[in-house]
Design a protein around this nucleic acid. Structure first.
Lengths: 110, 110
DNA sequence: TATGGTGCTTACCTTTTAGTTAGAAATATT
DNA sequence: AATATTTCTAACTAAAAGGTAAGCACCATA
């Protein structure tokens, strides 16, 4: 058996690449996961860590990621509010994807 | 030095993850690269290999990928036409990205 | 009384992306 | 003469994604 199996299968809706892309393919999704990384991070920090993202997109994506169990959220009943985000076990498994994109970018793109 | 450096840098427009995503983040882009893989493949085959993609998106993406030097294209002056697509050296370097998405999908998604 | 901090929501609008449909080019086959 | 084949183009439409801007809640401090 070859190390890397050659692709001879059609990529229909059940293709694992396609399924991954459905969840992670958004413009900001992997970037957010990458920034959270192994940290416990607050909403505001995250916002500063991703210059250019709008608040709307950031919470929208965060909510989606929480819903999809990539991220967990902890809100403290304080004033002013404090909310911390962390990657779940599943979320941590996406880090290699971001890493490889980072590597590819560093090695091959201007 | 840790094996994986913790992310403490803001992801601005120059972030390598972001640059990679700009080129590869489209709905069909990585899927097309994944299907071409190490093959020499014709337009029609590719179309059948990716059920659901429209002809417009397929050639649009292929043209972009050729422009970005991920894919090379060879047209034979025959009737009916025959056009073959292959990954360039650069294109081959994207395969690990698709592979890791495939693995992630297989291991973690329904 | 006004202002600030923090996390978020909402309504609206623009841009981007994607899908649909029709067809062209050129030759071989029926 | 009509039809099929293959790759690709163009015009149009629809849907998805993303951006802008305003504001709310609640308490603290100025």
């Amino acid at each position: 058996m070859k190390k890397t199996q050659k692709n001879i299968f059609p990529s229909d809706e059940n293709c694992p690449v396609r399924r991954s892309l459905t969840l992670l393919g958004g413009k900001w999704t992997l970037l957010i996961l990458f920034q959270i990384n192994e940290r416990v991070i607050r909403y505001g920090e995250l916002k500063r860590a991703i210059p250019g993202i709008s608040e709307k997109m950031l919470i929208q994506e965060l909510n989606l990621l929480v819903e999809h169990k990539f991220v967990s959220k902890k809100a403290y009943p304080e004033i002013p509010p404090r909310v911390e985000y962390t990657l779940t076990k599943l979320g941590l498994k996406t880090l290699p994807i971001a890493d490889i994109l980072a590597t590819f970018g560093l090695e091959n793109l201007t």
